Computed example of a mutant assay.
Amino acid sequence: MHLNVREASKLLQVSEKKVYDWIRRGILRADRVNDQYRLHRSDLLERTSSREIDIPAQIFEAPSSAGVFMPRLAEALNAGGIFYGLQGDDKAAVLGVIVNSLALPSNTDRESLAQLLLAREALGSTAIGEGIAIPHVRRPILLNTSSPAISLCFLEKPVDFGAFDGQPVFAIFLLISPTARMHLHLLSRLSFALHDSQLKAALVRRAARDEILAEFERVERAMKEPHVEAEDHA
């Protein structure tokens, strides 16, 4: 789903001038069509986890999700796995290593998937700042699987992803979902969770798997309790 600047400003609850500023600075990605900017919904979701855009990603969640089973982040992360020490000297090498490390359906064309992710990077970096990236293609990665998975990959050494804040990437989240609705649901919750300073600190020190899962569970409990403020919004 694409939005114009006016629609994006309304959704993000900021002025159109602020949206144009974010586009100019590379914090928001936009395509120029007939002299007008068009922003993709999933791109906005990712960037709400940026330090520059302190907006609850929950505003993106569709009401139509009510009554439909939607997995928790910790469950999806447990299914996708947490990988440590992945090696690569550049984006292409890193994305190839990540795709080859994942537990994907046997009929998945891993090489094509890696190329799709790399082609998306050519349109604009998927780094969201502070050393984190969420590679994706314009359409969600939908595979023949019964449940979604989020894989968290820690790199042996940070790699330049062309992030707007100039910081190289050390942690990469990759989402794989059976439906587009589920993809957006998980992306919105992941974006919200990445505002939490305690969770980010665990990522920076490359904490153990169980600790990271516990941090996601803690943040999600806060999401379910509107009267409880999140510990921190960076």
Score class of each variant (00 low, 15 high):
2 H>K: 13
3 L>S: 00
3 L>T: 06
9 S>M: 10
10 K>P: 00
10 K>F: 07
10 K>Q: 15
10 K>C: 08
13 Q>L: 12
13 Q>K: 14
14 V>L: 04
20 Y>R: 10
20 Y>K: 05
20 Y>H: 14
21 D>A: 13
21 D>W: 13
27 I>F: 11
27 I>E: 10
29 R>I: 08
30 A>E: 03
31 D>V: 14
38 R>K: 13
39 L>W: 07
41 R>Y: 15
42 S>I: 11
42 S>N: 14
43 D>P: 07
44 L>R: 06
45 L>M: 15
51 R>I: 14
58 Q>N: 11
60 F>Q: 02
66 A>V: 12
67 G>Q: 03
68 V>D: 05
70 M>L: 12
72 R>S: 14
72 R>F: 09
72 R>K: 13
77 L>S: 07
78 N>P: 01
79 A>H: 13
82 I>H: 03
86 L>R: 07
87 Q>P: 01
88 G>R: 01
88 G>A: 04
91 K>S: 10
92 A>C: 07
93 A>S: 15
96 G>S: 10
104 L>N: 04
105 P>I: 05
109 D>N: 15
110 R>C: 05
110 R>T: 01
114 A>M: 04
117 L>R: 00
118 L>T: 03
118 L>N: 03
119 A>C: 07
122 A>L: 12
123 L>K: 02
124 G>D: 06
128 I>K: 03
131 G>H: 11
132 I>A: 01
137 V>S: 15
139 R>L: 11
145 T>D: 02
152 L>C: 00
157 K>L: 10
158 P>Y: 05
160 D>P: 11
164 F>D: 05
165 D>K: 10
165 D>T: 14
166 G>Q: 08
166 G>Y: 08
170 F>D: 13
171 A>K: 09
172 I>Q: 01
174 L>Y: 09
175 L>R: 04
180 A>I: 12
182 M>R: 08
184 L>K: 03
191 S>L: 01
193 A>F: 09
196 D>W: 09
198 Q>P: 01
198 Q>H: 12
200 K>G: 01
201 A>F: 12
202 A>S: 15
204 V>F: 11
209 R>V: 12
214 A>L: 12
215 E>C: 13
216 F>G: 04
216 F>V: 08
219 V>M: 09
221 R>G: 15
223 M>Q: 12
225 E>D: 13
225 E>G: 01
226 P>C: 04
227 H>M: 09
228 V>E: 07
231 E>D: 13
231 E>H: 13
